[in-house]
Every structure is written in C-alpha cells, then in structure tokens.
C-alpha cells in the first residue's frame, strides 16, 4: 500500500476504464501545452526586437479562416472527449443487480461497516475480488465522502440521503480508504483500509468474525479513539481516576457526596464532567457532549463495566 510511485495500482474494473480516459486527456493536454509553449518560444526568438525575420502583415483572409479553424477544432475535440467520458457513465444508468450489499455508516471521524451477515468493522472493509459490490451508505451527522483512490471511486455520503456506490474489486491487496469531504477537526484521521481478498479467503474471514458485534470490544476502540485511554490508563501525565474495578463501586466526590458508579454516573461524567468531580482530582476533563453519540456511550459503558480486574487497566 505504501510504495511511493507516480501512478496508483488499478485495483478495480472502474480504475482501468477511468485510467484510459485520464491518460488520453493527459496526452491531449500535454500536446496542446507543448504546442502553445513551443510556439511562444519560437516566436519569441524568431521575432525578437531587431531580428532580421520578415514582418510582412498577414493577409486578412488568413486571419479569419485560422480563427474559425481552431475555434471549431477545439469545439470538436472537446465534444469528442465529453462524449467518450459520458459514454462510460451511461452504462451506469441501468446497473446490473449487485449480489453483495454492504451497509456503511459514516459518522464524525470513523467509518462503521456492516456486512450482510451482521459482521461489523470499524475503518476497515473486506471485499472479495472479482465480484460487484454495492455500498449502501448513510451519514449520521455531516457530509463525508467514501474514497478509495486505488479503485478510482468516490461517493459523498450526505446526511438525509442514502447513497449507493458500486464497484468491482479486482486485484487482491490492501488499499487506502479516505474521507474526501471536509467533516471537521479529525477529517484527516477518518481514514482506513480496504482489504481485497480472493473469494475463498473472504469466505474464511467472514466465518471467523463474531456474528453480532461485541459491544465491549467496540467500546474499547472508542475508549482509544476518543482519547480516554490517554488520561485514564497507564502512567498518563494528567492525573485522572483509574477506571478498572470502578463499575458498581462507591465513588467519593470532591463535594463530600458518595455515589455508586452506575450507567447514569458514567454517562454524566462523559457529558458533563465538571458536575461531580472525584475527590482529590482537579476538573480538567473536557466535555464530550455533541461529540459522543448515545450508541457510543453505551459501548463505552459496556467496556468500563468489563474492566473488573484492577491489575493492568482492563481487558481487551
């Protein structure tokens, strides 16, 4: 995935078609640029001030015919390029039925993928080679854009719309997945990997995945993604209460009250951390209101509930 080259691998059938048009345009454009730049340099040298070249005025009909000539030439050339590029799109007008449908949920700064059989992935997409795949994509908050450069495909995921993206992976390998539409602070972290496997490998991979997604496992990933691990775990520079063995235990607060750490307590300390501060700690935790959705809080709570053994800060 990361060998620096000048051209991307063609990992999908769309890539091959798009690349032919791209290369054709490249050839035509460089021809025109060389023509214009060449003419300018030739004229600049041949007709520089004081050079002996003849300065006969051009015959009037010559000017007018040349003008019409290159006007219609460029018009014809551009229409031809348009027709060729458009022809590739017309075939998409009535698409063949895709056997494989994968649901993708885009939300601020992560891709949640769910296969037909319920297998869930975060920021990753496993697809079999050689089969038409259709992504059914929705966004939970702002506009994102599912972009796999190696496949030459991109589709904005607009909230309020159900967007469909259809492609046929060809070359097995691991490719970049980017969010191409600006979506906020961690727009550049909303990236991932698309893994193209041979059909057998893909089938094997599918069975190894747990059928329904393990809430605590996704909670763990959220715990890392939102940076909670940064303070509440290991030897963090910021002093923050350890969470292992917290669930169900009484918590001594700074203002003297003691509360039991239940779901509501975990939820409140995520959304309004300044409300009840644990005794002996200063109120530095930022509020995650508006950043963390209810589904994620459920995941985080499940993860914290799973943190029974106090030894090394939790089970993965």
């Amino acid at each position: 995935m990361n060998e620096p080259g000048i051209w991307l691998p063609q990992a999908s059938s769309e890539a091959a078609a798009t690349d032919t048009i791209l290369i054709a345009l490249l050839v035509v454009s460089s021809a025109i640029v060389l023509l214009v730049a060449g003419l300018i340099t030739v004229f600049a040298i041949r007709y520089r001030k004081g050079s002996p070249a003849s300065r006969e005025p051009l015959p009037s009909i010559f000017a007018r015919d040349v003008e019409f000539g290159w006007t219609f030439a460029t018009l014809g050339l551009f229409i031809a390029i348009f027709a060729w590029a458009a022809s590739q799109n017309i075939t998409l007008a009535h698409p063949p039925a895709a056997r494989m449908e994968i649901h993708v949920l885009a939300k601020r700064w992560m891709w949640k993928v769910e296969h037909a059989g319920g297998q869930g992935e975060i920021d990753e997409l496993h697809v079999p080679a050689g089969e038409l795949v259709e992504l059914i994509m929705q966004s939970e908050d702002v506009i994102h854009s599912f972009y796999v450069p190696a496949f030459r495909v991109k589709q904005d995921v607009v909230p309020g719309h159900t967007e469909r993206l259809r492609f046929t992976p060809e070359k097995p390998g691991t490719y970049h997945l980017f969010c191409a539409e600006y979506c906020g602070t961690d727009h550049s972290r909303m990236i991932g990997r698309v893994v193209v496997q041979s059909p057998e490998e893909f089938a094997a991979w599918l069975t190894r995945q747990p059928q329904e997604d393990d809430l605590a496992k996704s909670g763990r990933q959220l715990f890392v993604r939102f940076g909670c691990a940064g303070c509440h775990e290991g030897q963090a520079s910021v002093r923050a209460p350890r969470l292992s063995g917290l669930f169900g235990a009484p918590v001594q607060l700074a203002d003297g009250r003691t509360v039991t750490a239940d779901d509501a307590y975990v939820r409140d300390s995520i959304l309004q951390p300044k409300r009840d501060i644990v005794a002996g700690y200063d109120p530095v935790m930022p509020s995650f209101a508006g950043v963390v959705s209810d589904g994620e809080i459920a995941g985080l709570t499940a993860y914290i509930r799973a943190l029974r053994a106090p030894a090394d800060g939790g089970v993965y």
């Binding site: 048009i21 791209l22 025109i32 590029a85 495909v153």
Partner: peptide
C-alpha cells in the same frame, strides 16, 4: 493558464472527476 485550463477538462469529464475530486 493553458495548463490550468486543460486540467479543467480533466475535472469536467465525470469519471476522471470522480477519481480526483476533492484531492
């Protein structure tokens, strides 16, 4: 301007723009 204008043709043709849009 010639180079800028011609790369505009890349962006005007739909399949190529789908690849290089927002890049």
């Amino acid at each position: 301007f010639t180079m800028g204008g011609l790369t505009g043709l890349f962006l005007a043709s739909v399949p190529v723009d789908i690849h290089v849009h927002d890049t």
